[in-house]
Amino acid sequence: MECSAGISADRPSVVIEPRRGLLQLELGSIWQYRELLCFLIWRDVLTRYKQTAIGAAWVVVQPLITMLIFTFVFSRLAKVPSDGIPYPLFAFAALLPWTYFSQALAKTSGSIVSNANLVTKIYFPRLLIPLAAALAPVVDLLFSFLVLLVLMGWYRVVPSAGLLLLPLFLILALVTALAVGLCSSALNVRYRDVGSIIPFVSQVWMYVSPVAYPVSAVPEQWRLLYSLNPMVAVIEGFRWALLGTAPPDPLPMMVSTAVILLLCFVGIIYFKNMEQSFADVI
Results as ranks from 00 to 15, higher is better:
Leu172Asn: 11
Val73Asp: 03
Tyr87Trp: 03
Leu178Glu: 00
Tyr226Gln: 10
Ile198Asp: 04
Ile16Tyr: 03
Trp222Asn: 08
Pro248Ser: 10
Phe72His: 05
Ala177Lys: 07
Thr99Met: 08
Ala173Gln: 04
Pro210Cys: 07
Phe92Arg: 01
Gln24Thr: 14
Ser185Ile: 03
Ala233Lys: 14
Cys38His: 11
Pro219Trp: 11
Ser114Met: 06
Ile7Gly: 10
Leu163Ser: 09
Leu27Cys: 13
Cys183Leu: 14
Val234Thr: 09
Ser216Leu: 12
Lys272Tyr: 02
Val80Lys: 05
Tyr191Asn: 05
Pro12Phe: 08
Ile7Asp: 10
Ser144Trp: 15
Ile268Val: 14
Asp193His: 00
Cys264Gln: 10
Ala179His: 09
Lys272Asn: 02
Arg34Asn: 06
Asn188Gln: 09
Ile268Ser: 02
Leu77Tyr: 10
Phe169Gln: 12
Glu220Gly: 05
Leu262Asn: 02
Gln32Pro: 00
Ile235Met: 05
Ala132Asp: 01
Leu64Phe: 12
Leu118Phe: 08
Leu263Asn: 06
Pro63Ser: 02
Pro86His: 11
Thr71Val: 14
Asn273Thr: 01
Asp10Thr: 09
Ser8Gly: 07
Ala5Gln: 13
Cys264Arg: 01
Phe70Gln: 15
Ser13His: 13
Val147Gln: 03
Arg76Gly: 07
Ile282Asn: 01
Gln276Val: 01
Pro18Met: 02
Pro81Tyr: 10
Phe74Glu: 03
Asn117Ala: 11
Leu131Asn: 09
Ile112Met: 00
Glu17Val: 08
Met67Trp: 01
Ala106Ile: 10
Asp10Val: 12
Ala56Lys: 12
Arg20Tyr: 05
Pro130Arg: 00
Pro159Asp: 02
Ala134Phe: 02
Asn117Cys: 05
Phe39Thr: 12
Leu187Gln: 03
Pro210Ser: 07
Leu95Cys: 13
Glu17Ile: 11
Ala9Ile: 06
Cys38Ala: 15
Leu263Val: 02
Pro248Thr: 14
Val139Pro: 11
Leu27Asn: 09
Pro252Met: 08
Ala241Cys: 12
Phe72Gln: 07
Gln62Lys: 08
Val150Trp: 13
Ser160Val: 11
Leu151Gly: 13
Met274Glu: 01
Thr176Cys: 14
Pro219Thr: 02
Tyr207His: 07
Leu262Tyr: 11
Ile260Asn: 01
Lys79Met: 10
Val266Leu: 04
Leu96Ser: 03
Glu2Phe: 12
Leu105Asn: 00
Tyr123Asp: 04
Leu68Tyr: 07
Phe271Cys: 01
Leu95Tyr: 14
Gln276His: 09
Ala186Ser: 11
Arg156Ala: 14
Thr99Tyr: 09
Val45Pro: 00
Leu174Gln: 07
Asp249Asn: 13
Trp205Gln: 08
Asp83Arg: 15
Thr120Pro: 00
Phe143Met: 10
Thr176Glu: 08
Ile282Ser: 00
Val175Trp: 12
Arg34Trp: 07
Leu149Met: 15
Ile112Ser: 00
Leu46Pro: 01
Thr176Leu: 10
Ile54His: 06
Asn229Asp: 06
Glu35Ala: 12
Gln62Ser: 10
Ala132Gln: 04
Val80Trp: 04
Leu105Met: 08
Asn117Gln: 14
Val157Leu: 10
Val281Glu: 00
